[in-house]
């Protein structure tokens, strides 16, 4: 039997739609008119590095589209909310790894400690945010963050033609970083990177409430051996890694 081009595409589309809809079902519920961040929750992430392909940039691409993070064109000053880092064991014993690094939304965030104006702050649900209305651009937070999670806006930002109007762009002179897609979380969704990783990537990112012992992420963190970046600093990051 031969299939013409159209039906192959059609079949692929149906399959893709099916795959997308199933895990996305809980996201469909329309947000209520008023929602409030809950101090009972602590949002966290688990990244399974064994399923993260070095060539894949689904998470970083999705982040740029979702949050209007445009490429400046100067590698020294490009803004990265999430980036892929390639790891090569210096002794050659462990396999090479590739993994995304983003803001770790620490329990004790040094960026928040050093911010003179409380522009960087911890929201009630543990998300570390920058209040762009209050940032004076002193960059002390960038000195203090051990994850290089923050970028200064060095020039007037370009507005992408297909900009996502739900997320404001950032004016020059303020410091910006990953928000865990706080606008999507408040609508009952999950960060764009996690969604993209499941759709187009290795499905290696898991997002959820680590305060809830029954959440999938809490179970996984209990079951598998995980680590956090620079755990020795005592910052208690909420982005956990598996497989390194």
């Amino acid at each position: 039997m031969t299939m013409d081009r159209r039906s192959v595409l059609g079949l692929g589309g149906v399959l893709a739609a099916g795959l997308v809809l199933a895990p996305g079902m809980r996201l469909v519920a329309a947000p209520e008119n008023v929602t409030e961040a809950s101090d009972k929750r602590r949002w966290g992430m688990l990244i399974d590095t064994t399923h993260c392909d070095a060539a894949c940039t689904a998470c970083t691409q999705a982040c740029r589209t979702e949050n209007n993070v445009s490429i400046v064109g100067d590698p020294q000053r490009d803004i990265h909310w999430i980036r892929k880092v390639d790891l090569h064991d210096k002794d050659g014993r462990k396999p090479d790894r590739s993994l995304p690094v983003l803001c770790n939304h620490c329990e004790h965030p040094p960026c928040v400690h050093v911010c003179p104006t409380e522009a960087s702050f911890i929201r009630k649900d543990g998300i570390v945010l920058v209040d762009m209305h209050r940032c004076i651009g002193c960059r002390y937070c960038m000195i203090a963050c051990p994850y290089k999670a923050r970028s200064l806006v060095y020039s007037k930002p370009k507005v992408p033609p297909d900009a996502n109007t739900r997320v404001p762009i950032r004016a020059k002179g303020v410091v910006e970083k990953c928000t865990f897609c706080v606008h999507r979380i408040d609508d009952g969704g999950e960060p764009a990177c996690v969604e993209a990783c499941r759709k187009d990537g290795g499905g290696s990112m898991l997002f959820g409430d680590i305060n809830d012992p029954n959440s999938e992420i809490s179970k996984r963190i209990r079951e598998v051996s995980t680590t956090t970046i620079r755990a020795d600093l005592g910052l208690k990051p909420r982005v956990h890694y598996q497989g390194i």
Partner: peptide
């Protein structure tokens, strides 16, 4: 919205 995480969608800038 920003600091308390309270979103009143009927009265947002959007």
């Amino acid at each position: 919205t920003v600091r308390e995480g309270i979103r009143v969608r009927s009265e947002s800038l959007a």
